[in-house]
Design a protein around this nucleic acid. Structure first.
Lengths: 222, 222
DNA sequence: AATAATATTTAGTTTTAAATAAAATTTTTC
DNA sequence: GAAAAATTTTATTTAAAACTAAATATTATT
């Protein structure tokens, strides 16, 4: 079985690799380890044929590496939804628990909860859940602070790194699926004013950066 | 957090310590590691105040050690029942999955599944589940091969080490809760003949050793 | 009680995984 | 093309967990 560290490196590379090859420094910053440690791990991952690694040129996941990464991400997102909807975990606690358990549940465990939930497409933060065969549906979203005034939007997902922020957003009612209209945007990275549930709310720019939205539509896109 | 190895040593000591202090060799045989490795670990456990260890005299769990052990056993047994009854795992697969996950689920996770199941007292093999406060109900049972002829008995639990055997027993319908009458016992460790569901079945002595029974009673004892 | 057999501990290594700092090298930038 | 930044190499470090072989303690046997 792959170690937890190896799995975490793969997850990180997957997350960062949208813009082509991923550099040592990017990984180093994300995982908060030294560059030398990253180089060491990249060599190991390369020997396991999980990444294509060229010195000084960065890494990319191989097909095998992608499969493994998607499996971990699938575990994580299925767990988050299951913890929230079936075990009544609060939204701010699901991330930590899922981050730990994602490495240890069997494929069978993942499949069982997937069946029970009826093959859901999105986790509680609005992230798409890869299918068992490794298909990850994509959708276009952007942070709330980049949306133009007047737009009718829907919250698609929340950045899930800060659990305090999540708790705050939950309390405000700013959850995935909620419909908003952008009324005003103060200049120089000022706060964003939105209307929702017939109330006006003012959202600080730093917070708005963590709320990812899509243009309004009736159905959640695939 | 305690490592998986540490947790496994504690579980093993708990299991073996009914007859007083546990010897190095007993642990060594159970975990299939060298005696020297056991001594090394016992020193570490002792430094952590999880066991009382006296060279050459064996170990006992401290109160702290018992609390931790019972927590792990609680996780294991709650998981087994949950996997079986809520995630539809087959009986022979729950042990392996629970053995892995027991080390990684949070207390909150354990409490949630405990709540959902209504604070069950026994796992699918008939083993008692410790309460959150660490109370482990005891019951007297003995292996089927030691029961006298004519006894009306109930299967209390099955030894859970051999998953092939478990699958076989499940197929035979020999499950915890089933009522049996012992009709015959062949001498010299021969097979045991039992009546159950109005059929006679002959059970080999080696198999009978793994079926633990209690004298008949309407309710499962506490 | 002496000796043999067994159990246990000690001492010294080994393995593996993961990390590090400092020095060397390559790439990028100005 | 030199300086700055990024990356790799080299050589260590840490930690957990295991091992073998030798030494010692305990228990059993005669």
């Amino acid at each position: 079985m792959l170690s937890r560290s190896v799995q975490d490196y793969l997850k990180t590379i997957f997350k960062l690799q949208e813009g082509g090859a991923v550099s040592t420094t990017e990984i180093s910053k994300e995982l908060k380890v030294s560059g030398a440690s990253v180089t060491g791990m990249l060599k190991r991952l390369s020997a396991m044929e999980l990444v294509d690694y060229n010195s000084y040129k960065g890494v990319k996941l191989t097909e095998k590496g992608k499969v493994v990464s998607l499996e971990i991400i699938r575990h994580h997102r299925l767990l988050e939804l299951y913890l929230k909807d079936h075990l009544e975990f609060s939204l701010e606690k699901v991330h930590e628990e899922a981050c730990r358990l994602e490495h240890y549940i069997s494929e069978e465990f993942a499949d069982k909860i997937d069946d029970i939930m009826g093959h859901p497409q999105f986790d509680p933060h609005g992230h798409p859940i890869p299918t068992k065969s490794g298909v990850l549906s994509e959708f276009e979203d952007k942070p709330l602070n980049e949306v133009e005034v007047g737009a009718n939007i829907q919250i698609k997902r929340l950045s899930d790194t800060d659990s305090e922020l999540l708790a705050y957003l939950e309390e405000m009612g700013l959850m995935p699926g909620v419909q908003l209209t952008v009324l005003e945007k103060a200049p120089f990275n000022g706060p964003v004013t939105v209307k929702f549930a017939n109330e006006e709310k003012i959202i600080g720019n730093e917070i708005a950066k963590n709320i990812f939205v899509i243009m309004n539509c009736d159905e959640i896109p695939e």
